[in-house]
Amino acid sequence: MKVNIPTPLRAYTKGKETVEVSASSVQGALDALVLTAPELKKHLFTEDDKLRSFVNVYLNDEDIRYLPQREDTATTEVDELTIIPSIAGGSAYSSKSPVPLSC
């Protein structure tokens, strides 16, 4: 199946926009992807192997976080996995940093 790689992570897939992997589940596809491109691992997963909070993974048009079986959802060769980091921000002060940054 095809895994679509976003612009900022293509440095770890030799510039490839898509990577072909063989897998029967979402987790299997992510594992196969990391096996093919080991440097991707730290960008996608935390140290305890959980998907980073800002990394969205879509199976075709579905966010895997909202699929009943999440990462264990079965896949076939015609499915497509898309990795897409989140885009957010704003002028608000961060809840993590109560002191405003002067920049």
Partner: peptide, 12 residues
């Protein structure tokens, strides 16, 4: 802002 920075993940 600090929020913009913390939420920025698209390198390059």
């Amino acid at each position: 802002s600090q929020t913009d920075f913390e939420e920025a993940h698209w390198f390059g």
